[in-house]
Amino acid sequence: MADFLTSTHRAKWVFTPQHLVEKYRAANQRARQVLEKCGATLMEIDADGSLSYPEPQIAKANVEKHSRTKPLSIDEEQCIRVFFENKIQEVCKSFHFPHKIQATALIYFKRFFLQWSVMEHQPKNIMLTCIYAACKIEENHVSAEELGKGIQQDHHMILNNEMIIYQSLEFDLIVYAPYRSVEGFINDMQWQEFCNADDDFLQMLKTLQDTARLEVDKMMLTDAPLLFPPGQLALTALHNSNALHKVIDFDSYLSSIFSRQNPVHRESEFIESLNAINSLVRKYKFPERKEQSHINRKLESCWGLSSHDESKKREKKSKHKSKKNSSEAQNAPS
């Protein structure tokens, strides 16, 4: 939709850094309490579609057996999310989905795990369901079956999780990714600022845009999409891209933008955002494999999936073969 200004995205899903930390902490805290109480944290989707934490019987056994099960720290949760956010980009690329779908799926995934801890819902299932939902919302429908087939997963798991995702997203399903804003700024540069453009210049703008897209790809893997509106992300990406290619005089372009805007946004404020976004990208780190598998083991034991007989019981109960699937994905090298 055209109007970001009146969107739920702007009204509800752009946070301050403090607020974001609080939300991560709250989800982590809740999972910790469940672990203490029930011995395991993974929520199950029942036949009737409702969700529940592990039953007391199982929980009891778990408490005794795994009394030393440790919850994930907030940083460790972050590692798990980072891993699966990369997976989203991979899966979308392998299906040749447009960038818009990849970005929508990523934003859904990020928003979902603001509400829940990775200890409560298996991120792999959520990731696939987010991709499925993104296809549906962007009117690029792909059946759950086909999506499941393409990645050798049981598609029922996708369908089981779909409603929980919409609900956790509070049904705010229209999201604004920076890719389109990049396009918008490029058009703007072309038509309003530099209308005497020749073919060479147009080619350079194309290069500028391509590199900016890659810059956005990087931002999409950080918390930046939850902290900044898409226009600021796009402009930062173009700034970085231009620093490399030196296509336009970026400072004067910025001035021209802000002179056209009402005084709501000031250039100095944007420079602050730009620095903050770039710092998030710089600090981004993909977890090392050793660290990753250590966290995975911890996570599986939080889920209550580490012991064989326990997992068998659970497998029978839940429709999807959570244990098998999860360990496959987790151990797979990225």
Binding site: A26, Q33, W116, E170
Partner: peptide
């Protein structure tokens, strides 16, 4: 759509076996 604090952030019904 839920998102209250506490143990049930999704506001998702917890009953079983209906």
């Amino acid at each position: 759509a839920g998102m209250g604090p506490g143990m049930n952030p999704g506001g998702i019904p917890m009953q079983r076996g209906v």
